[in-house]
Amino acid sequence: MAEQTGRFDGIIEFVEAARLGSFTAAGNLLGVTNSAIGKSVTRLEARLGTKLLHRTTRKLTLTNEGEAYFESCLGIMDQLESVETSLATGRATPLGRVRLDLPAAFGRRHILPILNALSLQYARLDFSVNFSERTADIIAEGIDLAIRIGALGDHADLVAKRLGTQRLMICAAPSYLSRHGQPTELAELSRRDCFGGWRRNQRPGWLIKDAAGNTAFEEIRVRHEFSDGEAMVSAALAGCGLCQLPTWLIGDHLRSGSLVSVLESFSGAEMPIHALWPRSRYMQPKLRVVIDAVTKAALAANSGFDM
Rank of each mutant, 00 (worst) to 15 (best):
R108D: 03
Q182G: 00
H253Y: 07
L95I: 08
P204T: 14
R255W: 12
P246E: 02
S22V: 01
L80V: 15
L100Y: 07
R109K: 13
H253G: 08
I170D: 05
P174I: 11
A275K: 05
F195I: 06
L249T: 12
L102D: 05
H155C: 08
L102V: 09
Q284P: 00
A151K: 10
D154M: 04
R58H: 14
I11C: 09
D137G: 11
E65Q: 15
A92G: 04
E13C: 02
A156H: 14
V41A: 01
T57Q: 08
L118P: 03
S261D: 12
T42Y: 01
A36V: 01
T247S: 06
R55C: 03
S132C: 00
E219V: 12
L158K: 03
G304H: 05
I273E: 06
T24M: 01
G239Y: 08
R255I: 13
A216Y: 10
G213Y: 14
G90P: 02
R223E: 09
R47D: 08
L48K: 10
S258E: 08
A297Y: 09
S22Y: 03
V233H: 09
A172C: 04
P285F: 05
L30G: 05
W248Q: 10
F131M: 13
R191H: 14
R255P: 07
T247P: 05
A172W: 07
L287F: 04
R192Y: 02
A105W: 11
A300G: 00
T33L: 01
F195P: 08
H54W: 12
L20M: 06
D228M: 14
L254N: 04
G229M: 06
D101Q: 07
L20S: 07
I147C: 04
A275D: 02
A172I: 06
R199T: 10
F127S: 07
R91D: 10
A160E: 04
L163W: 01
S119A: 08
A151H: 07
A216Q: 11
F23R: 10
A123L: 09
V15T: 12
S35E: 07
S72V: 07
E185R: 15
T24W: 00
L276D: 00
D306P: 09
V222P: 01
G196L: 12
W277G: 01
G142K: 02
R192P: 04
H274V: 00
M1K: 12
S258V: 02
L95W: 09
P113Y: 15
D137R: 02
